[in-house]
Design a protein around this nucleic acid. Structure first.
Lengths: 207, 207
DNA sequence: TCAATATTGTTAAGTTTTTCACATAAATTT
DNA sequence: AAATTTATGTGAAAAACTTAACAATATTGA
């Protein structure tokens, strides 16, 4: 079974290999990858093995071939359409973030309850919340980013769950559990910052 | 040794306990916590033990007391001053995000190279990049959030490193390694989304 | 007061993840 | 063409993390 760590490592391999590719490299060794990403070379080989990525003994791995395999694993054959629920500052920033496109992710719409934020002619458009269910069904949306205020997070998850959506990337500070039908991954920026503060303060204490 | 997972769990305990506190609860049992957070009760007790949080056999844990201890562990006695490097859409959204304050985190300034974004009278102010080093030293800043474009990420880390800052929360897609002097935690939103897409697609395949 | 009960604290067991170590195989050199 | 070198692929070992189990003990109720 693959776990979250393995997939995130695979994405790191992909980033590194694409970089090496632009530099003109054709081949890579597990040792090169392990040096840059600071993990052991045997973990790189084990990951590759688990994902069915093979190399040549003595010859290393062919970068083009691995990148193709990784895209196969990640299912990058079709563009992934994603919607943003809650177009506050963070939601708007993510809607307009340019980094998704080159990974085959397209933000196709935002939704908000505040009429002043609605802009049906925008690119992507911002529609009213009461269009969420229809839009998700009509456009076969499987993934959304949730950036609503904490107070309405629970209600929003219930609403989304009822639409049959498959995954929510949750930026609210409320931590939600996944179910068999709906995967919810939580990103808590405040916790990430608090964790960093803790580590830095501990480091200072040791000195 | 404490690791990242333990601290993030501690923050989750804190959130839950604060919620229970507002509901009027005085005591909590490890079972209550484990049910809500979907981890085993023995892990809760083990975490508490590791952090020196003790309860009463049969009586459970006193919420007020645990919350005090957690704040001690996290060093919440003084306000943490944080700066934002790179005031694009995401940087600006984080600068104005209201959720940091109640955790004792204050964004005291933003920095950018683009003159049109500079606003020395803002609250918090946005200053020019060439003031970063002086500001960090004069105000004893230990932590920053980095939301610059990918192209200047490496250069920015070098610049920050030279100021003697202790921690960077890095939102650029470049993954940086920590050193003994500088802790860098990486949040890659695109990877988080790609991982979610992978999981949801796999789930669908199984059906 | 004493027995019954419920929950912590902690050790042992179990599980997952990572690393080690080396046999195997391709490439290079002699 | 044989020997040597250098990576992969992988099974075993180690480390890290989580859960189970239960003894110790505080509380409740008879």
């Amino acid at each position: 079974m693959t776990n979250k760590g393995q997939i995130l490592r695979l994405l790191n391999y992909k980033n590194l290999l694409k970089h090496l590719q632009t530099l003109g490299f054709k081949k890579v060794f597990s040792d090169n990858i392990s040096d840059t990403l600071e993990i052991s070379s045997s973990l790189v080989r084990k990951d590759f093995g688990n994902f069915g990525i093979t190399g040549n003994r003595k010859g290393g791995y062919e970068i083009d071939s691995i990148l193709g395999k990784i895209d196969d694993i990640l299912g990058k054959d079709e563009i992934q359409k994603v919607v943003v629920i809650g177009v506050g500052r963070i939601g708007e920033a993510l809607m307009k973030y340019q980094g998704f496109m080159k990974e085959g992710i397209q933000i196709v719409a935002g939704f908000d309850i505040d009429p002043s934020r609605i802009n049906t002619e925008g690119n992507p458009p911002v529609l009213h919340n009461d269009k969420i269910a229809d839009f998700i069904k009509e456009n076969d949306i499987k993934i959304c980013i949730m950036t609503v205020p904490q107070m309405v997070a629970k209600h929003t998850v219930d609403l989304l769950s009822a639409t049959g959506i498959g995954g929510i990337l949750n930026f609210t500070p409320i931590k939600f559990q996944s179910t068999a039908e709906l995967t919810i991954n939580n990103i808590n920026i405040v916790h990430e910052l608090e964790n960093l503060i803790y580590v830095v303060n501990k480091q200072k204490d040791k000195e």
